[in-house]
């Protein structure tokens, strides 16, 4: 099953002005592909993710699943704001999607535990979100998204609120989990290293209006990209992306 984004455009109309956030967006996410969206602040990454996630309507164009074989495809989102339900403990949060799918008690119990173990939160099933650290909350959010075994996983800067060390560890963990589950994923970040570390393909967006500047395939093995022998290639990709973004990022900074 693949996801196709076709001619998507989005214009926000205020009382005073119109902002064209996205224009001419065309790409597809193949089965088991990890696609990363990068771009400077305000280029429309969140807007695009929300449209793909069905939380916003595009002004033009459409997004569809292809090759669904009559199955109703399901989505899961890991939000930048994490968005755990504060009144549900970790276990109840993780199985929320399963509950809504009408899974059996036994399935909920098994899958819930499986994904809690996968993100390393065993022992914290009964804890409420306010009792967790930032990294633990984000892992619970990831487990909640994984547990529904979605046909498309969307992640909007899931680690941007974490400190650098936790972030690095979480990236490693995400990669390990992804290698096990191989879910089709659309991942938003403004961190170039993160993009090169995780992606099969990187989509670079430019701003005003947000259009696709370039799509770069990262031709490296999925594991060990941060190792010494891959350093040169890693740097090459990072620089390539940075050169594409630099000008826009500077402009964004000047505009404030």
């Amino acid at each position: 099953m693949r996801i196709v984004v076709e001619n998507v455009a989005k214009t926000f109309i205020d009382s005073k002005r119109e902002v064209t956030a996205l224009q001419n967006i065309n790409f597809a996410i193949e089965e088991q592909e990890f696609v990363v969206l990068v771009g400077p602040s305000g280029c429309g990454k969140s807007t695009l993710l929300n449209i793909v996630g069905g939380l916003m309507s595009p002004t033009d164009g459409l997004v569809y699943f292809e090759g669904t074989n009559q199955k109703q495809p399901n989505l899961a989102i890991v939000f930048q704001e994490i968005a755990l339900f504060p009144w549900r403990n970790v276990f109840e949060n993780v199985v929320y999607g399963l509950e809504e799918q009408g899974a059996s008690k036994q399935e909920i119990q098994e899958k819930g535990q499986h994904y809690i173990d996968m993100v390393g939160l065993n022992g914290f099933e009964k804890a409420y979100p306010k009792q967790l650290s930032g990294g633990m909350k984000q892992r619970a959010g990831i487990a909640r998204a994984l547990s529904v075994e979605p046909d498309l996983l969307l992640m909007d800067e899931p680690f941007s609120a974490l400190d650098a060390q936790t972030r690095t560890l979480m990236q490693e963990e995400l990669l390990t989990i992804w290698n096990r589950t191989k879910l089709s994923t659309l991942y938003v970040t403004h961190n170039i290293q993160e993009a090169v570390y995780l992606a099969d393909r990187v989509i670079v967006l430019s701003r005003h209006p947000g259009t696709i500047k370039e799509i770069i395939r990262i031709d490296m093995p999925k594991t060990g990209r941060d190792s010494e022998q891959n350093r040169e290639q890693f740097e090459k990709y990072s620089n390539q992306i940075w050169d594409l973004i630099r000008h826009d990022a500077q402009e964004a900074l000047l505009e404030g």
Binding site: G53, G54, L55, N74, L75, A76, I77, F79, E81, A83, F85, Y96, G97, E100, Q101, R144, V148
Partner: peptide, 14 residues
């Protein structure tokens, strides 16, 4: 109620 929680619930099929 934080709208993001409503979005999360809808996303997970509520």
């Amino acid at each position: 109620v934080d709208p993001i929680l409503i979005k999360a619930a809808v996303t997970f099929g509520s």
